[in-house]
Design a protein around this nucleic acid. Structure first.
Lengths: 231, 231
DNA sequence: CCGGTCCTTATGCTCAGACATAATCTAGTC
DNA sequence: GACTAGATTATGTCTGAGCATAAGGACCGG
């Protein structure tokens, strides 16, 4: 009488069978009803357990085909990407923000391609810096599609960053994030105290709302910055 | 008569209310039963919708206290971290692996501190390279705690990488991952064709199994590498 | 052998009801 | 006023039942 009945315990048992036990990569698991019977829980509970394991990336589920242990058990890491201000204030440091440049210009070619814009569309280009305890922490180089978000043109970004305004204003959307290491350019040398060509950790993020691009941003970080997570 | 009844639609409606609608940051939402009544769905469905929104990081839920919109609506990004071989083969490129060095040595001080090891513990130090279509793709600099994983010493890593062996061997565990940009050192210059000091995108991962550290690895990537995800 | 149609089956989702649990609020006691 | 014990309440989870949906497989005709 195992009497597991709770989905966390079921998850643990199944994980154990996948890693140590008989269910190696590629194995086809028994069906939900069979597993539920074995573990003495309802199918709903078993369904939730398997769903969560599938979200971890360890198994693949297909209707009719059944549940299969993935050949390459990838494990996904979650990175929380808070507003800069919150990230800085959480460490106890004081937060300060400065707008360096603000231009309304026709979108350059590379941006038109990336955002899939029509020719001669104006974009708002903002460059700002976020300081932690007076030290430059992050350089924000942002482009906003004014065709999709005309309000942005009249918004005053000298006090609060565009990030916070956008999060509060723009509805949910598709986001593409990528991380990379770039050599420091003139801008990061000036404002983040990098040496020219030194490694800079960059986050690039593009945000979409129903097929129209809203904003593209590059966040360059001060030297030594690292993004960490546990799971 | 909304007749939403499906949890995805419920999620969308609630997200809309949080971003555009009346539920700004800090708002206390109505209870599950009230919301279920309003959206004409069962409490189970509403529970699932709210649970998923909470996993996105937009709301916080506490028993009795209720459901509250977070003040800083952080959105979490998921990064899938597959085995290198799978990552390379998915692009259609051919995969090749080479072991450069293998040493059994007493753990250096920085590693002892990081892994919380006793003095005079031996560790296995491996350096290997993963090639895509003949070009160096990733340099793997790995340390394995032989006290926790004595089998590793007799394992032959000249044919398959330690990554694949570890994934298949070690049970589930706590993992800490961090991303950063580092200047290229002698090793990455030699094997990844970087110029000395050029930006290198690095992933550092430490794996634990019940309070004992198993392995610490630094993965350095070829120039131009970027890690991308959508959500 | 090839292709289409129907049947079967495993997962996906919803529901109503029930009990568990944590945290807040309240009332009572010293 | 301070502290404690119990009532209250919103979320957390489990159950068993049912229908929906995708997709593999069998059957059949050409």
């Amino acid at each position: 009488m195992t009497q597991t009945t709770n989905f966390r315990a079921v998850i643990d048992h199944i994980l154990a069978r996948i890693t140590k036990g008989p269910w190696g990569p590629g194995t086809l698991l028994p069906s939900e009803v069979d597993l539920a019977a074995e573990f003495r829980c309802s199918r709903s509970t078993m369904n939730r357990a398997l769903r969560e394991i599938s979200e971890m990336g360890l198994i693949e589920r297909k209707r009719k085909a059944g549940t299969r242990v993935r050949l390459t058990p990838l494990r996904a890491a979650r990175f929380e990407m808070p507003i800069v201000r919150a990230e800085i204030e959480k460490t106890g440091a004081s937060y300060r923000y400065a707008l360096l440049r603000r231009d309304v210009i026709p979108a350059p070619d590379w941006l038109r391609a990336k955002m899939n814009l029509n020719p001669n569309i104006d974009v708002l280009h903002l460059i700002c810096v976020h300081y932690a305890n007076g030290d430059a922490f992050q350089l924000e180089d942002r482009w906003i599609n004014l065709a999709a978000l005309p309000y942005a043109e009249t918004q005053d970004f000298s006090g609060t960053g565009p990030n916070e305004w956008l999060i509060a204003t723009v509805p949910f959307s598709q986001v593409e994030v990528s991380f990379c290491a770039k050599p420091a350019d003139a801008l990061t040398v000036t404002h983040l105290n990098h040496r020219l060509g030194a490694p800079v950790f960059c986050v690039e993020r593009a945000t979409w709302w129903q097929t129209s691009a809203i904003t593209v941003v590059t966040l360059s970080h001060a030297s030594g910055y690292r993004m960490t997570t546990r799971y």
